[in-house]
Amino acid sequence: MEFFFEVLIGGLLSGVMYALVALGFVLIYKASGVFNFAQGAMVYLAALSVVGIMEWGAPLWLAVILAFAIMTAFGIGTEKFVLRKLVNQPPIALFMATIGLTFFIEGLAPMIFGSDPRALDIGIVDEPIPYILDNWNMVISKFDLIAAGVAAVLVTVLALFFQYTRIGRALRAVADDHQAALSIGIPLQHIWAIVWGVAGFVALVAGMMWGARNGVQFALTFTALKALPVLILGGFTSVPGAIVGGLIIGASEKLAEIYIPPVMQDLFGGNFGGIEGWFPYVLALLFLLVRPEGLFGEKHIDRV
């Protein structure tokens, strides 16, 4: 039973890490209706620029600030040179454009900062918490717990920002109806630039967390693939959905990885590891058949 809880909690905490990436998707989708496939690549770019700048001799805090500047500039540039030109195109075209953007970043980032995997040290060690280990005999990583804390803070800040600030209100208005927002004088392009900046910030946080845990390497771009089922489960438009979806996906995939392969081995023989690669997708797919708009998504009504 302890083992079960250990796996469960480990899964929940890694789910928080997925949610961090999923948040970036939700922000952009909410405000501009663009499904930004490049979020994973942005995570990679952010982590790589922090490490790259530190290699040039800057301290961590300066590197983070500079990386944030890079991400903001990049977000604004994307909005200005790509998305603005694609206004009024079908959403699928925008989606495919962000796939192009993904490839662009995946080529650009390692060209500037180098492509060899590196460690990112942000001063938190990845070791079990002694107190829990002693009393309940469970291995819970200190790092994962801190990452969960960071995610919680980030979500709270974003929620407050959306709910109570002037810009947040404008963002929600744009998300609701582009035309109506324009007609009451909300500058659409500023708003989109801000959203891309915020998404860049979220990517930076996610990139530092993932980078500190697994090292800064190309595999960081695959975090996007982990975040997609989270989004489907939680709904594309909901910030809490991203968190809840992340928790469900994280927990279920770790449990599946532990408990399904032995059963399959009994049935068919052979080695059936690596289930976590597809399990979240199949889970999300089955979930979609029951509830196509996700847990917290808005119901979509088609009109002819």
């Binding site: 790509v82 030109k85 694609l86 195109q89 075209a93 495919m96 454009a97 796939i99 192009g100 953007l101 993904t102 490839f103 662009f104 970043i105 995946e106 080529g107 650009l108 390692p110 060209m111 492509s115």
Partner: peptide, 24 residues
């Protein structure tokens, strides 16, 4: 050769965006 492959990926991405914008 690493740079060449990076530029290749970049050109791919840029071309996709270019085509979607200019000639969908």
């Amino acid at each position: 050769s690493a740079t060449v492959s990076h530029i290749q990926i970049m050109v791919f991405g840029a071309l996709i965006m270019f085509f979607l914008i200019v000639e969908p």
